[in-house]
Design a protein around this nucleic acid. Structure first.
Lengths: 234, 234
DNA sequence: CGCACCGTTGATTAAACTCAACCTATGTGG
DNA sequence: CCACATAGGTTGAGTTTAATCAACGGTGCG
């Protein structure tokens, strides 16, 4: 962990990304700024693993994180990605349980750690903040429920189309129209719950059908309407 | 909606089931008792449907409810069951969104409705209560994440074994050892995300293998260890 | 250079879905 | 009271989807 960098200020970060902390009073935000501790974490590092006890939550100032579970025979299931402005680890902290997911850094990150006690201090002092966190949890819960229904009912082809649309919405596209996240074929497979080979085959099908363009790990969506149609979302 | 019955008292219900309200002060519990409105709802009735605006949450005093989403081509995906002491609908209320699930009464129920405003009143007055609700949401979120991993990675056989164990844990067994919930084969299929016929075939396989006994819709688990082994949970 | 990781393609296999038929119990209306 | 409709349960056959297995090429790195 490297400390030779400019620690982000909570006030600034909160403005840039609209975090869960935006209902804090200026004094509370200042408190948060004092108690947090920031670190730079390099791509490829594992932040924590399923089963670890974690001492607090992480607020992301920079980078992209992969949150995943390890299922049958070590196969990874990606639960979500986290990006600047988002917090991870709150589920375990709130329930006082070991982490139920592992977290890996996909892109060099700046993370701020907030101790459980400090988090609870804020939660008890400011009910609005609690409601804010509750809203985040409920949003994730809704997404999880949607995803359960998708995996249970849709074909791999439908799910891949849907995930491509999600990734575009979540990470946006660059000047060339490529989605701003680099995932291996295996990672794509581990989001939608299929085999790597199936993803490869479907991607090249999509490509020959003129729906997408591929540049290594970067994907460009060409025919959004057809992709939407395939994905079966309304 | 029938009003000719003894409305449950929040104090009593809270003792019997340890609800999310157990961190309320006696005064707040009395407040809750005054603002809630109770109804008897018969088996088979639909409480609300996906897309409906709901005006508050429901606390279950009696009965069993099925919470489900409607997926591709109208196929139902069961998200969870709710039983006495639990609350439903909070996700939509907290996020100010229409319901993302439908709810059907599986067994005659007594439900208490709490308005959004009254809920928010309590949330703002008592931060501990907010944390309590947050804990429920986080617990459900953890379960949902587990379930995503299961559906994505396990076979139908494994999932059926797992669900049977879950149902036993959640609803318990009667004097004869039968699990205390009656589900159609189709409903079982709609939990694990498979076809009705597959459930039927697997149940009769389990039966011939001596793992379970069947009495209509009631199921008795005989060889717990083997079922656990099949389910792949540790 | 040689190893490790990733991506790709083909062939084969297995799991599970779909379709169809039929049975039973239950309830309804004439 | 019977005839019929409905819903749920079961079984078999055939088909489809996607997983698995295997081989191979490219790339980057110590």
């Amino acid at each position: 962990m490297n400390k030779n960098f400019d620690e982000p200020l909570c006030v600034q970060c909160n403005q840039d990304f609209k975090t869960i902390f935006h209902k804090l009073t200026p004094e509370q935000l200042e408190y948060l700024n004092n108690v947090k501790s920031c670190t730079v974490v390099k791509k490829g590092r594992i932040l924590y693993e399923e089963g670890n006890r974690i001492s607090g939550i992480f607020c992301i100032n920079k980078g992209i994180l992969k949150v995943y579970k390890t299922g049958v025979e070590g196969k990874e299931q990606i639960i979500k990605f986290a990006k600047p402005g988002e917090v991870i680890g709150y589920r375990s902290v709130i329930n006082g349980e070991p982490a139920c997911t592992s977290v890996k850094i996909l892109e060099d990150a700046v993370l701020c750690h907030i101790n459980s006690q400090d988090l609870y201090h804020l939660l008890k002092e400011n009910a609005e903040f609690g409601i804010e966190l509750l809203q985040i949890a409920c949003k994730e819960l809704g997404e999880a429920n949607n995803y359960i229904t998708d995996i249970a009912q849709k074909s791999v082809r439908e799910r891949l189309a849907e995930i491509l649309l999600h990734l575009k919405d979540e990470f946006g596209i660059n000047e060339e129209g490529l989605i701003n996240i680099s995932l291996t074929r295996e990672e794509l497979a581990n989001i939608i719950g299929t085999a790597t080979e199936s993803v490869i085959r479907l991607l090249s099908e999509f490509k020959t059908e003129g729906l997408i363009e591929l540049q290594g790990r970067k994907i460009k969506l060409i025919d959004l309407n057809k992709i939407k149609k395939i994905s079966n979302v309304f």
